[in-house]
Simulated assay, not measured.
Amino acid sequence: MTRTDLAGVGTRTIRPRRDATWLVAIAAALWGTDAIFRLPLAQNTAASTVVFAEHVILVLALSPFLLRAFRAFGASPVSIKLAAIGIGVGASAIATVLFTLSFRSGDPITPVVTQKLQPVIAMVGAALLLGERLRPRFAFFAIPALIGAWLLAFPDPTQVSINRINVALLALGAATLWAAGTVLGRLASRTIGPLELTTLRFAFGLPASAAMVAATGSPWWVADLKSTGSVAALALVVGLVAMLLYYRGLRNTAASRATLAELAFPLTASVIGILWFDKVLDGSQWIGVALIVVAVTALSLHEARSRTTAVVDVDERPLVGTSG
């Protein structure tokens, strides 16, 4: 699609983009079923053991594609290689361990609702690494979201409990690493295909999770067949199927937009926490949930409808050149 430039310099070519945000949202909704399997495991099994077992199953399932994935990795520039390694070690292994540890309190809601902060974190990362520039108005959305996270973490916001701090910090650490994974995934997906990137994510996550098992002296496998079944469900449904959809969608979706679609994860998981596990929130925690939901939803609507967005996406700027 072309049109003549008003200044008469040449023509402006708009690169068509397919909307794949819905694929990211479906993947994130699958992540939302995580607590059904992870919460019982977290109560009885070391977090590093659970995550290592997940990665073993995932790498075995993807073993036919390992050679193809590492060929793509070898042909990539250094920045893409570092991004792929960072995704595997940080977003796949360390973040999942932190997320599993956050369930130790028995609260399935706070860890997942805290993930609503991912868009705030990911947009900052996208600005730093991908050139998605943030305007000052971004603070109007980020600050209420941070206040909401505080209220959610502490049922009485004036009484700060060490245990509640641990849950909040663990969940926030996971959110930060997963947000970084979104940004790095967007970067790497420019060069590496969805299947190869998914394979590399878990291939690099496997030795990282093994190192954490060794460092903590945890068992190398879960205790029984039922636990193995739960790990397999985590790995193949919440992990493999979701990640394949996610990277397929991320290839044609800006990081700042993709991370908003990922809100399907905490929304789905919060509903499951209330209906499946009969958990309830205190009054101030509901205010915290409302602040996070409203702030991030408002940011999403603002970015979709405003002519002057809070985030300027470098990948969707018009290109100036000659018509073909």
Rank of each mutant, 00 (worst) to 15 (best):
T198V: 02
A269W: 03
H55Q: 06
A233S: 10
V241S: 09
I162E: 14
A145K: 01
Y246K: 01
G173I: 02
A84H: 07
F99C: 00
P16A: 02
E316L: 14
W221N: 12
S161I: 04
A35E: 10
V238D: 05
V89M: 06
L263S: 08
R17K: 14
A304H: 09
A232S: 06
K279F: 14
T21L: 13
W22M: 08
F65L: 02
V271I: 13
L275S: 10
V167I: 03
A35N: 11
M243Q: 12
L240C: 02
E196R: 09
E196V: 08
S284T: 09
P207M: 00
G229E: 04
A153F: 00
S227N: 12
R71C: 03
V24I: 09
V231R: 00
T158S: 15
E54H: 07
A42N: 06
D224C: 13
I165K: 06
Q115C: 11
P40S: 05
G173N: 01
S161P: 05
V112S: 07
I87D: 05
E316W: 02
L299M: 07
A232R: 03
A95W: 06
A255C: 02
T4G: 14
L30Y: 03
R68G: 01
L41S: 06
P194G: 06
S230M: 15
I80T: 00
T33A: 10
V160R: 09
S227C: 09
T259I: 11
I162L: 14
A233P: 12
L66R: 15
F141C: 00
V293G: 08
L98M: 15
A310K: 00
V113F: 08
A254P: 05
V314I: 11
H55A: 03
F99V: 03
F140I: 15
N252P: 13
P136D: 04
I143W: 01
G205E: 02
A179V: 04
G193V: 03
A210I: 08
V112H: 10
V113C: 11
T191A: 06
S48L: 05
A223Y: 14
A20L: 13
L291D: 07
L66N: 13
R71V: 10
P77S: 12
L6W: 15
I165M: 11
G86F: 07
S270F: 12
L134I: 12
T308R: 12
I165A: 14
T268W: 04
R12K: 09
I292V: 11
T322R: 09
S48H: 04
L67G: 15
I87Y: 02
F99G: 00
G283H: 04
W286L: 13
T216C: 07
A53F: 03
V296S: 07
H302M: 08
V222L: 11
R257H: 08
E303P: 02
I272D: 01
P266V: 05
A214Q: 15
P40A: 05
A290Y: 03
D315I: 11
P16H: 04
L172M: 05
L98E: 05
T198L: 04
A149M: 10
